[in-house]
């Protein structure tokens, strides 16, 4: 579903944020992307979803190149950024309809999905209010619903659990599992290693822009905790 092939990114100031990253995320994978702050997680994620331009390497989504066929890639992808900066002058329902219009979702389908996820995340009653009146968590919930509105084949998330209340976090985890059962893939970054260990079937650990280890969770962790593995791998990479 997602193939990152020898991806590197150097910012115009000369900072090398990602170096020769190669990863493959298959259908049905919940793939965790773990690393320190500034390790290159967000840079990679932003390149995958087409927000960040890059020249070195290539990224393929559902067989299409992000560089050459960005529209084909974006049609099957949903992105949840680390900070839910939404259009504050729209109401929640207006924003969701905006996203649904862009993806060409029929009125009936969007209505069903907004109702379902709105009720699940307990935000339906607030959808008529301006987003500017929302708390961080409410904005995050609207972002999640907008990502789910077109039933993406690939969901890319940057720290998706930040700001969510415990119930919403649990609901999101369930939605992620449900999506993967249907054949979609999820690629997400997180600092919460317990969540990654429980949720992901595969992980990659990134340090200073380089992948230091990647693979199936059970192969990497074995009898240890992910926290121990992470600390060990990161120390070894020094």
């Amino acid at each position: 579903m997602l193939e990152i092939r020898d991806f590197s990114k150097t910012y115009s100031g000369g900072k090398r944020a990602a170096e020769h990253i190669t990863l493959t995320i298959e259908d049905g994978d919940i793939y965790g992307f773990i690393g320190h702050n500034g390790a290159g997680k967000s840079t990679t994620i932003r390149a995958v979803v087409g927000v960040l331009d890059f020249t070195e390497g290539d990224i393929f989504i559902d067989g299409h190149s992000v560089k050459k066929e960005p529209m084909e890639c974006k049609k099957v992808t949903a992105y949840i950024p680390d900070n839910p900066d939404l259009y504050e002058h729209l109401t929640g329902i207006q924003y969701l309809n905006f996203v649904a219009d862009i993806f060409g979702i029929s009125a009936k389908e969007r209505e069903e999905r907004i109702r379902r996820y709105g009720d699940m995340f307990e935000i339906t009653s607030s959808l008529g209010d301006l987003i500017s009146s929302y708390s961080h968590g409410m904005k995050q919930k609207v972002t999640v619903i907008s990502a789910l509105i077109h039933e993406p084949k690939l969901m890319v998330m940057d720290e998706p659990f930040v700001g969510l209340d415990p119930k919403a976090a649990l609901d999101l985890k369930n939605v992620m599992r449900e999506l993967c059962k249907k054949g979609s893939s999820i690629f997400f970054s997180t600092h919460v290693l317990e969540v990654a260990q429980k949720l992901c079937n595969k992980i990659a650990i990134i340090k200073e822009g380089k992948i230091v280890t990647a693979g199936r969770m059970e192969d990497l962790v074995q009898n240890q905790s992910l926290e121990d593995v992470f600390m060990e791998v990161v120390e070894d990479a020094k």
Binding site: N97, I102, R110, E111, S125, G128, S132
Partner: peptide
Amino acid sequence: HHAASNYKMRKQESHSAIH
């Protein structure tokens, strides 16, 4: 900001992307 928090799901309409 005024937050009524009394929205009830109703029939939605679809439009073109440019709209």
